[in-house]
Design a protein around this nucleic acid. Structure first.
Lengths: 197, 197
DNA sequence: TTCTGTGAGTAAGCATTACTTACTCAATTG
DNA sequence: CAATTGAGTAAGTAATGCTTACTCACAGAA
C-alpha cells in the first residue's frame, strides 16, 4: 500500500532526518538504504512506503529546503526598491542560504543535476521559479533604465547565477569558509560596474 | 594481474570508446558494467584489468579530453597580447570546447564533482591548472593596469568560471543549441564593462 | 628448439544493494 | 462490533559492481 501524502507519520520524518544527516557526511551514491533505515531505527521496507525510490527521497528532502530558501529571498526582495538593489539582495541571500544550509546546496548543486528525473520533480519547479524571478528583475531594470539596454537579460542571468553557484562550490566540496559579505559585494561590483579599468 | 600502463591494448581502447558512447546517451550511474562490456564486445572482467573501478574509467576518459581542451586554450592565449583579450579567449574557447564535446562537459560539470575520489585524480590536476592559468592572467591584468586594482582576483575568477559553466549547463542538460559568439561576447561585455548604466 | 615469464582476455562466482512482496498489528469509523 | 485503513515489519529477489582463478598466445633467453 502506497502513501497518499495526507499525513506525516513519525517513520517518514525519521527517514528524512536520517537521510539528511548522512548526506552531510557522504555523497548520495555511497549512502545505502540499509544505512538510512538503520540510522532512522526503521526497517528498510518502510522507506518504500513513503518514497518511490532512493532518489525520490532525495528530491523530497531538497524540496523542503527549497521552500525556506524561496520564502527568505522573496521577503527580502520586497524590501528593496531599485532593481540593482534587488539583484544584490538575491546574490547575498543565495550565498547566505547556500552557506548555512550545506545539505541543501550539496543536493542542489552536486547531486540532482545528472539525473533526468529531477527535471520532472517538484523541486525543479522551485528552481525554475527562482530563475524566473531573477530574469524578471533584470527585464524590469532594463525597462526603467537602471541596466544598460544592450545587455541580454538571459546572459546576465547566467553570469549572476553562475557566479553564485561557483562561489558556493568551494565551500561545499572542500568545506572552506565563505566570507559572504566580501564575496557578495565582490560579485555585485564586478557584474554591475565591470572589471575593466 | 594488474595493468602497468606501458602499452595500450585494443581491449582497453574498446572499453573507453564504448563507455564514451554510452555516456552520450545516459548518466553515469545508469550505465552498467555489463553494458559497457557488451557494447565493447569484451568480457566484464577485462574492465577491471585496465581500470581500478567504474569511476576510474570515468576519470581516465575525462583526462584524455582534458588534454585536448588545455592544449587548445593555451595555444590561443599565447596569440593574444592584452590580459582582457586573453580572458576573452579563455571564455570563448571554453564555451566552444564544452559545446562541441558534450561528453567531456557532461562528465566534468555533472558527474565527477560529487565523488571525493575525483579530487585525487589526474583529471582534477588539469582542472586546477586551468583555474590557475585564469588567476594568473587576472593578476597580471591588475598589475599592468588593465583591470581595476580594487578587484579581488579570486572573485573575478569565480564570476568568469561560474558564468562559463552555467552557460553550458543548459546545453548539456537540455541539449539546447548554444550561440557561442553571442554568449561569449555577452559574458565578456558584462564582466568587463558592467551591466549598470 | 624448448623453456619461461608476461600480458591479453575469459568464465564463473561472490557480496552488496536497491527494491518487492506478503504479512501483522493497532487505530479509526460506520 | 465488524470492517477498513494506515503504520510498520521480515524475508526475500534480481541485478550490479567487482574478484578470483584460470587459459592462451607469444617474445626472448638458454
Amino acid at each position: 500500500m502506497k502513501h497518499k501524502g495526507k499525513t506525516n507519520p513519525p517513520g517518514r520524518i525519521k527517514i528524512m532526518k536520517s537521510f539528511s544527516q548522512l548526506m552531510a557526511q557522504k555523497d548520495f551514491h555511497s549512502i545505502t538504504t540499509a544505512e538510512i533505515a538503520g540510522n532512522a531505527q526503521v526497517t528498510e521496507g518502510l522507506i518504500y512506503k513513503y518514497f518511490k525510490d532512493k532518489k525520490d527521497l532525495l528530491y523530497q528532502v531538497l524540496n523542503e529546503h527549497f521552500f525556506e530558501f524561496m520564502a527568505k529571498i522573496e521577503n527580502r526582495i520586497a524590501n528593496e526598491i531599485t532593481c540593482i538593489e534587488q539583484l544584490e539582495v538575491v546574490i547575498f541571500s543565495s550565498l547566505e542560504s547556500y552557506a548555512d544550509n550545506r545539505i541543501f546546496s550539496k543536493i542542489l548543486l552536486l547531486e540532482v543535476r545528472n539525473s533526468p528525473e529531477f527535471f520532472n520533480s517538484c523541486a525543479y519547479e522551485m528552481a525554475r521559479k527562482y530563475s524566473r524571478t531573477i530574469l524578471e528583475i533584470i527585464e524590469k531594470g532594463i525597462k526603467n533604465g537602471e541596466i544598460k539596454p544592450d545587455i541580454d537579460p538571459y546572459i546576465l542571468r547566467k553570469v549572476i547565477i553562475g557566479a553564485i553557484e561557483h562561489a558556493c562550490l568551494g565551500e561545499i566540496i572542500f568545506g572552506k569558509e565563505l566570507d559572504i559579505d566580501n564575496v557578495s559585494t565582490g560579485i555585485s561590483n564586478i557584474v554591475f560596474n565591470g572589471a575593466k579599468v
